[in-house]
Design a binder for these strands. Structure first.
Lengths: 192, 192
DNA sequence: CCCTCCATGTGACTGAGTTACATCAACTAG
DNA sequence: CTAGTTGATGTAACTCAGTCACATGGAGGG
């Protein structure tokens, strides 16, 4: 764990998760996290813009996964098919090893308003990215917005059941299932 | 503006908006805001839990407006009608004097990531409140979630055009119009 | 006129986040 | 093998948000 050991970000993530679990998020100082990772506070803030970002490293990959999946969808594909591609792109970012981390993270988020707020921002960022791509395809701001909301909601619902399930099920079909059930609920209300 | 002058919260709000406009959000210190309002930092933090909350005083009223409107909707009313009641409840919280404040606030929010994050949390809180009420009525988590998203999106879209419009139009019909157009876009995708 | 209540003020403290400058491992060139 | 360069890390001092214990002063009641 000396000065030039690799994966400083990963070490900080593990140290943060441990300490937050032991003491709670607010009671843990950035100095403690840095020390357990074998670093100093300054390096922590060089690698993450603030304390919360340690836990939100994955946001960029999720947005990239969704936007690239939409780009790969065939030209002329109908809106619901492109939306399925988007949520598939989100789900496929996760590996089964991340499930364990997620099981630690979810209760942690629930424990701190500061983290919940950052989580809401993350969700909003993902939704806005999908909305942007859908708008470029279909040139309808309202359609892009509501579909993005449905997609993100389905992704989060699928993720929650992935985390909660005792078995190591694959995430993608869970998300597809949620998307199907959410759209079915809407169809029922707006039928006719 | 002496020690016991009334409406300390309102004075702080006005001072904050002025200073944020003059210097930017991050460059303005809580001491400056308190001083312009004729108070001290300590009092500011007694009235608001943090710097951003000065600008987000209205959140509780919005949530109350939406939830009470849903409660007032007739028993047995269909889901789309209850959703209309919810967004009406949101829109009716605003008075036409608030329009001017909103015109100052919107560009301010765009200027600071910290404020955008808080705004995302506010939007999420409103959506969760509506979702909760709809779930109690219709006992369907997915339906409650997607409808809440659509309602909040329509409210924000209507609010944006209210702020942008040169005339002082009433907000409620703008929000109703947005809700109708959002649901129409969905109907078109999920038709048949 | 005094007493109590409560909003406000004072001053000191913790911890997040920033910055300028120093250090040290690794790599590269000669 | 050595010297210079590069980039990640460390040191130390700073600003400011947010907290807290305690002091003060205006308003209203007896």
């Amino acid at each position: 764990m000396a000065r030039w050991d690799p994966d400083a970000r990963g070490r900080l993530l593990r140290a943060a998760i441990e300490l937050f679990a032991e003491q709670g998020y607010e009671a843990t100082t950035t100095a403690q996290i840095a020390e357990r990772a074998g670093l100093t506070r300054t390096t922590l803030f060089r690698l993450f813009s603030d304390k919360r970002e340690i836990l939100f490293q994955g946001q960029g990959a999720l947005i990239a996964g969704a936007t690239e999946a939409i780009h790969r969808a065939p030209a002329g594909a109908p809106a619901d098919e492109v939306l399925t591609a988007a949520v598939t792109g989100l789900a496929d970012v996760h590996t089964s090893e991340q499930r364990e981390t997620g099981q630690l993270l979810v209760p942690l988020m629930a424990s701190s308003p500061e983290l919940q707020e950052r989580a809401a921002f993350k969700r909003d960022a993902i939704a806005r990215a999908i909305e942007h791509e859908l708008f470029e395809r279909f040139d309808d701001r309202r359609l892009a917005g509501v579909l993005a909301d449905i997609g993100v909601r389905s992704y989060y619902a699928g993720y929650a059941s992935w985390i909660a399930s005792p078995d190591d099920l694959p995430l993608t079909p869970l998300v597809h299932q949620e998307l199907a059930e959410h759209t079915a609920a809407l169809r029922h209300v707006f039928a006719g």
